[in-house]
């Protein structure tokens, strides 16, 4: 269990993190979200014991984080952190040894993971000779080789093609099934939505949303409508002008709209049919995470994390 309790981090007069609390459990993937400069990296640095909080505490498995806990965590930073002129294998073994592994164990495990990530023949290649995607996979091996209890993955899918992204997602899900604590930071909310069990949204150094993904979405109610249709779409503009709906996204023959408080869904359907549109799909559901994210960050939501939110 990872507990972040009321941590504060100041840099001079600027407060980067202001009383952030959350808990991440083993066997679950915890999504840490927030706009750039919200305090995510500062929070991660306190968890990884790169920096120390000015107030509050961070504990892993009941113990304050420190040099001992560092060995039980693996951190994949957003940007590649590898020695460019070093050979892949040598570098992986070095990084694993710094986490306290014996040399022989480190070499065996790293070779296994390299094979699993289809990098088997790159052991003696220099890092700078690898493609961006391969470097990303090497970095991932460096993060998990020492079998850490806590994994911190900051944009782990960046630079990966869909096939490699799937490969990585499979491994992350295996690690979750294996009971690891996984902290997942990303701006790609559709990935967060697919992968995460819990989420925590930080904005301007404070937690604005937190909880199980399902509960968070439930707070926002089932008032998002997805419509697919053939034919004219001017009716959408009319609905928006009358402030009956807010169009979140639209493309040719498809739209995602938020219903205003008093707008029944059938009114939208009626408008579409009256306008002569041929509706093939009509679904009322919870808002997607990107809608919740924007709403929470731009407008702010109730400080009571359990209170329902109207859109």
């Amino acid at each position: 269990m990872l507990h972040v309790d009321q941590v504060v981090k100041r840099y001079g007069s600027f407060t980067a993190v202001d009383g952030v609390s959350f808990s991440a459990e083993p066997g679950r993937i915890f999504g840490l979200l927030g706009p750039n400069g919200a305090g995510k990296t500062s929070t991660i640095r306190m968890i990884t014991y790169i920096t120390v909080p000015d107030a509050g505490s961070v504990t892993l498995g009941g113990q304050s984080v420190g040099p001992a806990s560092q060995r039980r965590m693996g951190y994949l930073p957003e940007e590649r952190g590898l020695y460019k002129k070093m050979k892949v294998g040598e570098q992986l073994v070095y990084l694993a040894q710094l986490k306290g592994m014996r040399r022989s164990d480190a070499e065996r495990t790293c070779r296994d993971w390299m094979g699993r990530l289809e990098l088997g023949d790159q052991w003696n290649a220099e890092v700078e000779a690898l493609s961006k995607g391969m470097q990303q996979k090497v970095q991932f091996v460096a993060t998990i080789a020492h079998a850490p209890d806590l994994l911190i993955l900051d944009e782990p899918f960046s630079g990966l093609d869909p096939i490699n992204a799937d490969l990585l997602r499979d491994i992350i899900q295996e690690l979750r099934a294996d009971g690891r604590i996984i902290l997942f930071a990303s701006h790609r909310l559709e990935q967060v939505e697919k992968l995460c069990d819990d989420v925590c949204l930080i904005a301007q150094g404070e937690v604005v949303l937190s909880g199980a993904l399902r509960d968070v979405k439930r707070r926002f109610g089932s008032n998002t409508l997805t419509v697919r249709f053939d034919g004219p779409d001017a009716w959408l503009d009319r609905l928006q002008q009358q402030r009956l709906v807010t169009v979140e996204s639209r493309s040719r023959g498809a739209a995602e709209v938020l219903l205003a408080d008093a707008t029944p869904a059938r009114q939208v359907l009626k408008a579409a049919l009256n306008a002569g549109a041929d509706v093939s799909h009509f679904e009322l559901h919870e808002p997607p995470l990107n809608v919740i994210y924007k709403l929470a960050v731009e407008r702010g939501v109730s400080s009571d994390l359990n209170a329902p939110v109207s859109l």
């Binding site: 640095r45 990884t48 014991y49 790169i50 560092q70 965590m73 951190y75 930073p77 940007e79 590649r80 952190g81 590898l82 020695y83 460019k84 990084l95 710094l98 970095q139 460096a142």
Partner: peptide, 9 residues
Amino acid sequence: NRIVEVMAS
């Protein structure tokens, strides 16, 4: 290279 972040962790 930002490797310092990996090292510092």
